[in-house]
Nucleic acid binder design. Structure first.
Lengths: 368, 368
DNA sequence: AATTATAAAACAATCGTTTGTGTTAAACAA
DNA sequence: TTGTTTAACACAAACGATTGTTTTATAATT
């Protein structure tokens, strides 16, 4: 044990300044220091000034551990994502961190690596760290939800984002995936496409199921028949997209459009079409989903659905903080649904229109 | 204040189980519980077994706040990045989180948003949270380093990564940027290029300065003259890359290659060249820097330098943990330099070579 | 002058773990 | 038997901040 100095700590001594140091220096009690710093009414104005000046002089930083321990509430939020890569999760984390910092919280980040067991360990670590609330985007392999029940039992606020548990009794912020696929399909219909194919994702994941639904809804809305030949279930890889496109192009009556539930898959399809000499969008129009960075780079640039990553992060934090601050006052769980945005780009816009027809954020694109 | 139960907590009561609960249940002291769980020698084997069984039964999670407060060392690491976006930082964070978790630490993530003042506040928040160590990639606008000195004064381990302070007295993990630009230039020379241009970045940033140096070294090595017309200083945007290329192509004697210090800038140059009908790589060969995701997507795919993001994250954590665990035993500050890797792709490889000449990770590329 | 408010600050317990120092009892050696 | 070692555990004081409950002055009121 390093012997604790009895003399007041100099501004740059090894050990950080504590309230006790300030109290000793001013000859008052720690209570006074604590209350002066938190602007308690029972401390006189001149004493407050003295304390705050001294705190600044020594660059006093409160020990948040001690504070959290005593108060039973920390200024830490936990976030669990499957991984920190690609476009989506980093952007959401970006939004979360920004919003949390603004509210005086810090964020502990964990990756589940798409592994339910790791997710469970993450939860335990966060509980152990006494976070004030947890934000989760579920791992693909999560089937049991017991670890989340324990979070609930402790009364700890829990908000899912993007990949949520089903049901009305959870707090969640999600994208309206069905709407996203619907507006993509509508857009293709508006471009004159009549045989619209769908690259679907794993159907045990809600997001892909909903995108599939949106596609079907779009067909129904336009009075188009559902052709099972034109629906392929994939894991959303570039390779599978190319494979599906190859098969479709070999059909006697190939599709004139592809609505993909993911950008990578759309890219694969696009590349395969061009490899086979089929022009995009005039031979086959293509839409993706997620607004991955490359969609604006590829040639032609890919029409896609923006997932409002930043807004999702912000909304998640907002909801979580509401739950935290309304401590006890049992809130009815809420689901916030964000509206996706269609980004029209070259891969699907068929004739050169005089001016950008849709929203401000339409195609920047197509260096050609 | 919720009245604390006196009876032992059921597994799913609101309040988490504490050591006191376990101690009461077994009729022993908290000391015994603590030492049994940490496998202290002075506790008998059968008592240890009993305690551990009960802890498991109640799913006891130690309060890390209390533990850290008492021990003066938390299991939290802090990380400050300019932002969580693009390819590089998310990947490094990915590597860091993975390595930290493996070692039993959790990571608090902060963004400086390229703002020195925010960076300073981040540091204070991390100090306040009593992290065991801090990892930083400097904001672009940081000119004063006083906030880092305070970290040092507290004896808190500090490791820079990628964007580091200059000097021998800091711990840092960086990429050998000079080497990166050098091998890119060498590669262009090997492709037969003789008038190699350089898209340089802001020279007050070490990384760009070093890339510039590497380019110059490459020219010297090949006995090529330095032509100032062929060197343009930019902020590394796509737009500026295009502009520079436009100017170069208007030259009486335009370059036959461009070595860019960044991928976005290289992309801009590439697109401008193609817009003007100059073939890539045969008219002008192009290399980028950073291995952004789009470099493999663009047509042609872009030769670039991989920055070993994951390895950088791992190395950063490794170094930080060494510093933490060697507590006190003053370590000589160390700089770890990672070797960049050239990823040869279509934008620079001039004639179809019979087999990939270089390393295993060479071009996958070129759907054409 | 005695009483009662009010303001300003001190006391002391507490959050949940950890750990240096006892304490007890059994085991062993002399 | 007495003294000494060892094993196994308990006591109690930290860590640094917070907060309900006094206490002590000072001012205001009767």
């Amino acid at each position: 044990m390093a012997p604790r100095k009895k003399t007041p700590a100099a501004p740059s001594s090894g050990t950080p300044v504590s309230m006790a140091d300030l109290a000793r220096e001013l000859g008052v009690s720690m209570t006074t220091i604590s209350r002066a710093l938190s602007n308690h009414y029972s401390i006189g104005p001149e004493m407050k000034a003295k304390v705050q000046k001294l705190a600044k002089k020594y660059n006093y930083q409160p020990n948040r551990l001690a504070s959290a321990l005593r108060k039973g509430k920390s200024k830490l939020l936990g976030i669990i994502v499957p991984y920190i890569e690609g476009r989506f999760f980093p952007s959401v984390v970006h939004g979360i961190e920004t919003a949390a910092t603004k509210a005086g919280y810090n964020v502990i980040i964990c990756q589940s690596h798409e592994d339910a067991a790791q997710e469970r360990r993450n939860i335990e670590a966060l509980l152990s760290a006494q976070v004030a609330g947890i934000m989760v985007s579920l791992s693909r392999t999560t089937t049991s939800y017991r670890h989340f029940e324990e979070v609930q039992n402790r009364g700890l606020p829990l908000v899912f984002f993007d990949r949520s548990m089903e049901g009305e009794d959870v707090n969640a912020v999600v994208l309206d995936d069905q709407e996203g696929a619907l507006i993509a399909t509508r857009h293709l219909v508006a471009q004159g496409c009549r045989r619209i194919a769908h690259l679907a994702g794993p159907q045990h994941l809600t997001i892909y199921k909903n995108r599939y639904r949106g596609y079907l809804e779009g067909l129904r809305e336009a009075g188009l028949p559902v052709d099972e030949e034109l629906i392929v279930f994939t894991d959303m890889t570039q390779l599978e997209g190319a494979g599906a496109m190859r098969n479709w192009l070999a059909l006697p009556n190939p599709p004139d459009a592809v609505c993909s539930a993911g950008d990578y898959c759309a890219l694969g399809a696009l590349q395969e079409a061009r490899r086979q000499g089929v022009p995009v969008p005039d031979g086959v129009a293509i839409t993706g989903f997620s607004n991955e960075a490359f969609t604006v780079i590829s040639e032609p640039s890919i029409t896609t659905i923006d997932q409002r990553c930043e807004e999702m992060g912000q909304a998640t934090v907002r909801l979580l903080l509401e739950l935290i601050e309304s401590h006890g006052t049992a809130f009815a769980p809420r689901q916030i649904v964000l509206r996706p945005e269609l980004l029209m780009r070259s891969s699907s816009v068929r004739e050169a229109k005089p001016a950008a027809p849709a929203g401000k954020r339409a195609a920047k694109t197509a260096a050609r």
